[in-house]
Write a protein that binds this DNA or RNA. Structure first.
Lengths: 245, 245
DNA sequence: TAAAACATTTTTATCGATATTTTTTTAGTT
DNA sequence: AACTAAAAAAATATCGATAAAAATGTTTTA
């Protein structure tokens, strides 16, 4: 999400509890373990994560700025809501930034970049199913593949924004998967993009990428629309709600 | 910077100390009162602002996610560095987003939008000099004018990102002004944009806007380059450094 | 039965205190 | 004078405690 989000000690400062909390919360939200509108009560998080209030609040503040969490003064934090309109909005922006970054990456990618793309593609293609117990792994490699494609783009800020949008988009995908998974030929789309990139067919690559993103979004929107019709419970966190009768 | 950044009580929660700290810090950074790389020591800020450590750290965390501040684990916060390369990067992105938002705004702006634009333009044109003691006021109206132009864009996320980039850009302008001001015909450029917008000459408006932004950035880059050649002192905050001899 | 008023419980935002880490200063060596 | 090493000072990250606010539950009133 952010430029630097260390969880382990490294040259640029050691991992603080805030960093750890940020990573865990971020991951829980992006993977759909924490669904939209879920209340993020400091009290509970403290127990669940074993981290004090201050680092938690700092992490949540960062996430709020990232747009993954909402804050309301005196009323605490919640996972950001998810709506079809917002998904469309995000999708449109993601396409704009992704294609821009891809275009530049294809212009300036050298041999090392190519090698990295080939490697990322290879790893991704080794896990066939989009689902199953190896899903997190697939998700990870999918992420790395898409990142590898744009890695040669020379604009750090563009890459940063693109990454943020990727995350937002991923959250929506995760939410949809949480309800039901749609199957389609993702691998095929990936392969087409892969080929276009290596052959430097810039416009093709951008267009294929656009369609890939849009297609995903449409499927997610469908699932989302079907479920948002239902009355949304004011979700708590883990705490089992009392059921009448 | 953010969707909602209240400083005064409103429907969506009352203003917390965190909000106040955020506003003040944000303003100090964007207006150039806090220069790049300035150390933001909690201890000192506490005295200066009369706000405790926790709200300060939360505000700084948000600013860090916004990219206006850097954090290094165990080594605290600093105002984000400013480099010519980063300015160029930001400029490029800002142009991308600004023109995109403007294009859409021009497509869907109705009569109310027009009226708001006319009003914003009028207010801006009433303060002639770009400098002087009324500079903050001019800056404010400039902001409002540019915001009015894109206000009819229907993508909240795009407007949000655009606003973030505007702020980043403003910071660079402020830094440059801090050293020396460049004079040119800003009003003329503004007027040209204004006319193109009202007459819905979309491509013209975008191009004029692009040039406007790029032109500003080039001037700022010049000032910045001239000054970054000098050895950068490890700036402290207010605390007078001991001068040898 | 519904609404209003009040009392309780829970949670938030914030402060002050503190162990740990970093930075600065001082002293000691080659 | 230029490095190191040790000591002192300052700053950071974090915890626990608490006033204020919000949410929840209960009783009273119409």
């Amino acid at each position: 999400m952010n430029a630097a989000t260390p969880t382990e000690p490294n040259d640029a400062g050691s991992a603080t509890l805030t960093d750890i909390a940020y990573s865990r919360l971020s991951d829980d939200i992006l993977s759909g373990r924490l669904l939209p509108d879920t209340k993020l009560a400091i009290e509970h998080l403290r127990r669940d994560y074993g981290i004090g209030a201050s680092p938690l609040r700092e992490a949540l503040s960062r996430l709020a700025a990232d747009g993954l969490v909402t804050v309301i003064g005196q009323r605490g934090f919640r996972v950001a809501p998810a709506t079809v309109a917002d998904l469309r909005d995000i999708t449109r922006l993601r396409i704009l930034l992704e294609t821009e970054a891809l275009r530049e990456s294809l212009c300036s990618g050298d041999e090392d970049w190519e090698a990295a793309v080939v490697a990322a593609w290879y790893r991704l293609s080794k896990i066939e199913p989009e689902r199953g117990q190896r899903f997190p792994e697939w998700e990870q490699r999918n992420h790395e593949f898409h990142e590898a494609l744009v890695a040669a783009c020379r604009s750090p800020r563009l890459l940063q924004l693109r990454a943020a949008l990727y995350d937002q988009h991923r959250r929506y995908r995760s939410i949809a998967v949480h309800y039901r998974s749609a199957d389609r030929d993702v691998s095929g789309e990936h392969e087409a993009i892969y080929r276009a990139c290596l052959e430097r067919r810039i416009d093709d690559a951008c267009e294929l990428s656009r369609v890939h993103i849009q297609h995903t979004a449409d499927l997610v929107a469908e699932v989302l629309a079907a479920n948002s019709a239902l009355p949304q419970p004011a979700r708590g966190r883990g705490r089992p709600r009392k059921v009448a009768g």
